[in-house]
Design a protein around this nucleic acid. Structure first.
Length: 271
DNA sequence: GTTATTTCCTGTTGGC
DNA sequence: TGCCAACAGGAAATAA
């Protein structure tokens, strides 16, 4: 399931193939994603030069002179670059075709993703305007997080997954970061002291940075790959390790549900 | 304003 | 072997 590191790795992987290229057409085989793909997407984008490929939270932004294509991978989406003909398979819903024949192919079995057309400043679009800061940016600091935790009785796990507070921390990295910071995911936001908060901010940044670095080395090939492009997983401390021994203290890892989501933690290490 | 719940979708897994 | 329920999950939409 693509989290921020996967999206950033994807951005880097496709950027070199798309930047400054001209779009010939966009072939939509199935428009039924999270929202319908605009019927006129292809004619809007045709003959436009790709100026940049940026990322905001888990959204990818393909910027053209007359607008922006916004892509979200949902939870099962992936993008590949094809430099030669390759038959589309069942869940290959979209091809963005360049004038040189190269294709950006979108696959998404669960169709939780999105392809939308934005005009004007994409960062002001309703989907992006109310998002919190990027976790790897300077704006996401201990002082900032502390300001967001005042009077918050919600569990810290759910707070760091709230896009209004900080973006890009999904279910996997929320559990991992809290383990690495030795913080019990069930603690309420306001119960964290400044030391906890500094530690948590640092571990979120480190965990995500390491995953991006790992993704760059393990998934460098986004060209003509055989369909597995997109996902990778860090060697987790707690995620998915229910009942297995904690890598630090050997206590069995525990699972609970918070807000309909699985949370994994070590009851011995995390307080 | 804040917080909790529901919804979107389908491939995979486990129980019977 | 087949059937079916449960599960996974980001984030918008809706409810409380």
């Amino acid at each position: 399931m693509p989290e921020l590191p996967e999206v950033e790795t994807t951005r880097r992987g496709i950027e070199t193939h798309l930047i400054n290229a001209t779009i010939k057409e966009i072939i939509v085989r199935n428009p039924r994603l999270r929202w319908p793909i605009p019927v006129d997407l292809s004619e809007l984008a045709a003959n436009q030069v790709i100026l940049s490929i940026r990322r905001r939270a888990k959204y990818l932004l393909i910027e053209l002179a007359n607008g922006t294509i916004l892509i979200h991978l949902g939870m099962s989406g992936s993008l590949r670059v094809l430099t030669e003909a390759y038959p589309a398979e069942k869940h290959d819903h979209v091809d963005l075709v360049l004038s040189n024949g190269t294709r950006l192919r979108y696959r998404d079995p669960r169709r939780f993703g999105a392809w939308l057309w934005l005009t004007g400043n994409p960062l002001l679009h309703p989907h992006l305007a109310s998002l919190g800061p990027e976790p790897l940016g300077e704006q996401f600091s201990p002082a900032y997080l502390a300001s967001k935790l005042v009077n918050k009785h919600t569990a810290i796990k759910q707070l760091i997954m709230d896009n209004h507070i900080v973006v890009g921390v999904g279910n996997i990295y929320a559990s991992e970061s809290l383990f690495r910071a030795r913080i019990d995911p069930q603690r309420s936001g306001h119960s964290l002291d400044s030391s906890d908060i500094s530690n948590l901010v640092e571990q979120i940044k480190l965990t995500l940075s390491e995953a991006i670095a790992a993704g760059g080395s393990t998934l460098r090939d986004y060209v003509d790959s055989d369909g597995k492009a997109g996902y990778f997983m860090i060697n987790s401390y707690v995620y998915g390790r229910t009942g297995q021994a904690c890598r630090i203290c050997s206590t069995p890892i525990n699972t609970i549900r918070q807000g309909q989501r699985a949370t994994f933690y070590c009851p011995q290490c995390q307080h």
